[in-house]
Amino acid sequence: MKNSFDEKILEEANDWIKTNQKVVLATVIETWGSSPRPTGSRMIVNEKGDFSGSVSGGCVESAVVRECVEIIKEKKPFKKIEFKVSNESAWEVGLACGGEIAVYLEQIN
């Protein structure tokens, strides 16, 4: 198997740390159904909520950012979160595509 992409998120994480930002790495660790991004997809978030990369096509990023900022505040080293199919009637975060994903958040220290 070959793949033709290299998103350089880890390199960017290192650059952020060099400028004294706190960084949480979010990684898609499991997917079910038609999830928008494959296992191994990544995004990084700093303590201010700035982010780069993605774990879905924009569906759950806002919630991931919130969770990441939270674990920095609470000094939690890692956390696993899951997202399921969204409920159409609410403004809640979810995957409109009908897939489910599990995302692992970890602080880089």
Partner: peptide
């Protein structure tokens, strides 16, 4: 993840 591990990964990618 430790910063040390992250930097090692970047080096291996390079």
């Amino acid at each position: 993840m430790q910063l040390k591990t992250l930097q090692e990964i970047i080096k291996k990618k390079e």
